[in-house]
């Protein structure tokens, strides 16, 4: 499939999911009620459609796009198809920040948990950006990332350990499992600066990702300012990941799977894979959110659970097909 056709197809899928996101939910709306929701701003259906479902769908699309883009950037930077936004420990940092904020009883302060998550992610991001500028080899960055992830995971466990009450513990757990339920426009707007700057940095780094396909040394002799581009890639992916976790908790698999879904259609080019990865991430997460809404369970399924439940088999299928194409 040509890249343009792929992007168009994904855009159509996003529009369809937006429509589905408005139409589907806990409360079943009839066609008449939906029409009323559009016609009458004071009606209950209007509130359901535009104050509950639309921001929720928008949050899912934005978080999915950010994770898809961050995943594609990490895979390109590290030249590793297993890389995803969590591989360098940024998600772990954001999770720890949120856990600390919840146990410090900041849940009542609007935006406090999100700010703590984003702040912690940025701290990890700054450290990683410094390391990325200093060390050229992707293996080094991955090893540091594994160490960060393990350490931050242990710190989060420590927060659980010292949690003042089982209720707080449940709150932290619930937050970490990921969800875009009850997100309003303010939640999205608060993360916009990080998302915009992160996206800009990732797009700036795209040329460097393409050149890195030929290896570090060839890239460093290509004439591109590779140190700056590598730092931009890490900083951009960190911002996007941090903002995503701040908005929706930790949602796995989207950042890993989205680039794989669209790589063949982008000619394998790590620069040209960025846009379709973002679109595919939005599709995956919006679909997962709709699944979470309509699967009949007493407690709504968490987004991170749905993406893992459906994402893991899907990813195995992609890996199976990729392996078959490699072995001919």
């Amino acid at each position: 499939m040509r890249p343009l056709a792929l992007n168009l197809l994904l855009s159509v899928a996003i529009l369809a999911l937006m429509a589905a996101g408005l139409a589907l939910g806990e409360v079943q709306l009839t066609g008449t009620q939906i029409a009323q929701g559009f016609a009458d701003p004071a009606s209950a259906p209007h509130e359901i459609l535009f104050d509950i479902r639309l921001p929720r769908t928008a949050a899912a699309l934005v978080v999915g796009a950010a994770l898809g883009l961050a995943g594609a950037v990490m895979q390109g930077l590290l030249r590793n198809p297993l890389a995803d936004p969590s591989v360098l420990g940024v998600s772990g940092g954001a999770g720890l920040g949120a856990a600390l904020a919840i146990t410090a009883s900041l849940a009542g302060v609007p935006g406090a948990i999100e700010a703590a998550a984003l702040g912690a992610a940025l701290l990890v991001g700054v450290l990683l950006t410094w390391l990325a500028a200093r060390f050229r080899e992707p293996e080094t960055l991955i090893l540091f990332g594994v160490a960060f992830s393990a350490f931050l995971g242990a710190m989060t466990s420590l927060v659980f350990n010292f949690s003042p009450s089982p209720v707080t513990l449940a709150e932290v757990f619930s937050w970490l499992l990921g969800s875009v339920a009850n997100r309003d426009w303010d939640d999205i707007v608060r993360q916009l600066p990080a998302l915009v700057v992160g996206t800009g940095l990732c797009l700036y780094a795209a040329r460097g990702l393409v050149m890195l396909t030929l290896g570090e040394e060839t890239a460093s002799l290509s004439g591109l300012p590779m140190t700056r581009l590598r730092a931009a890639a890490v900083a951009g992916a960190s911002l996007l990941t941090g903002a995503s976790v701040a908005m929706a908790g930790i949602v796995g698999f989207v950042g890993l799977a989205a680039p794989h879904l669209v790589r063949a259609g982008s000619g394998g080019d790590p620069g040209r894979v960025l846009l379709p990865s973002a679109l595919a991430g939005a599709v995956l997460l919006a679909a997962a959110d709709i699944a979470a809404r309509i699967i009949p369970t007493d407690l709504e399924l968490k987004l991170g659970v749905v993406t893992a439940l459906f994402g893991a088999p899907l990813f195995a299928l992609i890996a199976w097909r990729a392996a078959r194409s490699w072995t001919g």
Partner: peptide, 10 residues
């Protein structure tokens, strides 16, 4: 070469 890019692109 890290990814399966087209020869012309490489």
């Amino acid at each position: 070469v890290g990814w399966n890019m087209a020869a012309g692109r490489v």
